[in-house]
Each structure stands twice: as structure tokens, then as C-alpha cells.
Amino acid sequence: MAAGGDHGSPDSYRSPLASRYASPEMCFVFSDRYKFRTWRQLWLWLAEAEQTLGLPITDEQIQEMKSNLENIDFKMAAEEEKRLRHDVMAHVHTFGHCCPKAAGIIHLGATSCYVGDNTDLIILRNALDLLLPKLARVISRLADFAKERASLPTLGFTHFQPAQLTTVGKRCCLWIQDLCMDLQNLKRVRDDLRFRGVKGTTGTQASFLQLFEGDDHKVEQLDKMVTEKAGFKRAFIITGQTYTRKVDIEVLSVLASLGASVHKICTDIRLLANLKEMEEPFEKQQIGSSAMPYKRNPMRSERCCSLARHLMTLVMDPLQTASVQWFERTLDDSANRRICLAEAFLTADTILNTLQNISEGLVVYPKVIERRIRQELPFMATENIIMAMVKAGGSRQDCHEKIRVLSQQAASVVKQEGGDNDLIERIQVDAYFSPIHSQLDHLLDPSSFTGRASQQVQRFLEEEVYPLLKPYESVMKVKAELCL
């Protein structure tokens, strides 16, 4: 049975990233139509530049190519590739079939990587351009969430054990800070992308030097003109047959890092959902379990974690691919890159769409948070109580021993009897502590235990987050809708 299948058929496997999760716009960027249309555009740009620099290419040939950029006979191309065992030459023939007058000058002087690699770089750039505003929107939604809850005390956790208090907004800023680093890295790697350009079979530009009869300047002009037509500021000066596969490492490393950030955020949300302090959106008709109707599973956060793990592992592909590119190139890269580049971007696209949807509907339960604080705060307040007693004339050592005994009794009630923490009640009825009984409410005010959390939130948002989001103001209103 021949390899390949009808990918629109229910009898043929289709990647869930495309069929179930990723956005239509990201799927289109990695589609065959987008790819092969870009090949034709690159052939047109090459012909236009070659004509401008004096090669015998007519206006009629150029116009014929322009008129057929979208006229792609995919069936013919597939048949040609089956016959020739070469995808680029299959599309040269297919393009030439609908451009008979231009057929002889299509791909003039070029090698397969002229269309293959340059198209990949265009796709990487455009895919990054799709991700950047999506990530900015996630940051914006979380920034709104953090600002609104900047002063809401909550129990902090280290080692997932109760620690000092923080605020809900401050905790959210930990998430935002990681995503801001990801946004900066995505922008950097996007701006650092260079075009492969017009380089020939081993990167020496020998074929173009021959076409222009040894004119170095025209060869350099050709490279520059096509690079500018493709919208790049610069091209690699040095290439082998391909652009260095280190570029793929750079791009997928940034995406993998984004995956790590999203995994951490969504894990926190899942843990908070278990504590009943916070939940992701839950639709009115949504079913959490087929057997347990009360369940409210954090399905979206779980999906993000599941896909983020996949995204983090994909960076190993370009690392290994770059390491086995012998001399000017081997074909070890080809099949692998067809999979890992598309999957990385479709996965990143999915987790950003999902995280935006989550961040637009996060639900906080202040009463649950308050109750958990009441359970733990008495123990945390013991040092403040000791200091207040010393100020009232008591002995630190005597007070410490009193607190120690009462704390152990209260802990026994919590752990052995399943009761509430009654340390404060014990202190309130103990005559030894009568000098500070009137101060206990103040000493137990949760806001006095959150330090500068709310001020940190305000400063972080104003100095770091809002300036970073400013270039994306025009796209901030787009909502994230999930079908599944």
C-alpha cells in the first residue's frame, strides 16, 4: 500500500493539533497551500530580480507567473513527485505547466533550498508574528487579574506546605514575570531571523556568478533584492546548502521555554482548584465526569500541561538535527523538520489560546482563602504575639514557653481530632496574655502579614508589564474561544 493518505478522510490519521486544537490561522501558515504558494512567490521574486539585473526574462513571463501564483494543481504535483521522487522539481514542473512561456526560467540558477529553506524562514517569521500578540493578550488578562487582587491576602506555599502570606495578585505576578520573559525572547528570536537568500547549491553562489558572467556586484544585488522582497532586513552571508540548523534550535528553545512557563502556571491553577481557592472557567453544560456528576475538573489547565510537556520535548529534535548536518548538509534534517517545526508552533498556539481562555474567566473564592488563612495564621502570628507581650512588660522566655504549650495543644486538636485551630481562643482565655487581649485582632490582621506584596504588584505592572504590552494595544480586544 502506498504511503500517505487522504487526510480529510475519517479513515486516515490526522494530527489532533490540526484537527482538534490549533487555530485556523496557525494551521494555514503550515498548510501545503501556504507552503507551495510561497515557493511560487519566491520563484517570481527571483525572476523579477534577475530581470532587473539584466537576464533575458520578459515582462510577459513575469506576468504569467504572477497570474498563476494561486493556480496550484495539487493532484498534478503529487503525481509528479511520485514520478520524480523530488518535491521541488515536482512543483517546478507543475508551475511550468500553467506558465508555459515562463517554464524555462522558473528556478533559474537556484537549488531546492532556495524555495525550501527560504519558505521555512518566512513561515517561522509569520508563525512567530501570530504567537506574539496571543502571548501579549494572556499577559494582559493576567495583569488585569493581578491588579484587581493585588491586596487580597492568601496563604503562600513553599514545598506545598503553608508559608508566609502573600497576595493573590502577587502570586499571579510570578506567572506574568515568566511570560514577559517569554514574550521578550519570542520577539528577540523573531527579529534575529535572517533570510537564507540566493546562495546556490553549497552556499557559494557559483551558479549565479556564472549567470551574471562573473559580476560579483550583481550577485550581491540579486541576494539583497530577493531578501528585501521577502520582507527581511538581512540575509546570511555564510550558508551551506541550507541555512544553519542552529536557527531551528533557537526558535524551538524559546517555544519550549514558553511551554515550561505555561505548565507551571496551569499546575498552580490545578492545585488551587483542589484547594477550592480558584477555578478555571466551567461552562453551564460542561460535564466533569461521566460517573461523578459533582466533579469540576480543571480540564483546560490539564490540557495545557499535557501539550506543554510535548512542546518542551520537541527542542531535542533540532538539537540532534543540527549535530548531524555533515559538511554542507545531509538530508537527516528533512523529514524531522517537516514534523517538529509545525508541531512546535501548533502546540504553542494551542496552549496560548487555551491559557487566554482560562485567564479571561478565572474565578476566585475569597471566603475559602480566608478560612485557610484562619487555619494557619495563628501559628504564624506567634512571633508577633511574643513581641507584643514583651512590649507590655512580659518575659520573652516565659511567653515563648506559654505559646509553645498552647500551640501544641491547638495542633493536637487540628491533627488528632480534625478540629479547627483554636490557638487564639486559648490565648484569649489565658490570664497571662490579658495585657494584649485587646491587640489580638490587630495582630491577626492578614494584611499585616503580606509585606509589600501589593506595592510590588503595582510597581511591576507599571514599570515592566504595561510598557512591554504597549506595541500590542491594537490587538488586545480579541477574545479566545474554545470549541473543545
Rank of each mutant, 00 (worst) to 15 (best):
F157A: 06
T201H: 14
G259A: 07
E64K: 07
S434R: 10
E60H: 04
H217L: 06
S301V: 08
A2M: 12
D73K: 01
Q184A: 11
Q164A: 09
G4Y: 11
V138W: 09
R309N: 14
F327G: 09
P10S: 12
L482W: 11
V363G: 14
R309I: 15
D182G: 03
Q456C: 10
V368D: 08
P24C: 00
R296L: 11
I106H: 12
D317C: 13
E79T: 00
R404C: 07
R83T: 09
Q320K: 12
V226H: 15
N353L: 14
E228L: 08
D248V: 13
I424G: 09
L211N: 15
S261P: 14
R149G: 06
A388L: 11
T38I: 05
A103E: 06
R190F: 02
S253M: 15
M316I: 07
V29Q: 15
L55V: 08
S151D: 02
M316H: 04
D11R: 06
D441A: 02
S306A: 05
D117S: 07
A273P: 01
K295T: 00
I237P: 10
G200L: 01
S112C: 01
I249V: 09
G394P: 15
R188E: 12
G231M: 07
I72E: 05
S434L: 12
M312W: 12
V138M: 01
G419P: 00
A103K: 02
K367I: 00
T267A: 09
C99S: 10
D349E: 14
I358S: 02
M299W: 06
K284D: 05
I369V: 09
G203D: 00
S12P: 00
S407V: 12
S253L: 14
R188M: 05
T227H: 02
D192G: 11
E48L: 08
I106E: 03
V414M: 13
V189G: 06
V363L: 15
Q41L: 07
T242V: 00
L406Y: 02
M89A: 01
G54H: 06
N71C: 04
G104Q: 04
Q161C: 14
I176C: 01
S359H: 01
A3L: 11
T242R: 03
G203K: 15
I351G: 05
Q205T: 12
E25D: 13
A256S: 14
N357R: 09
D268M: 11
H263S: 12
R188H: 12
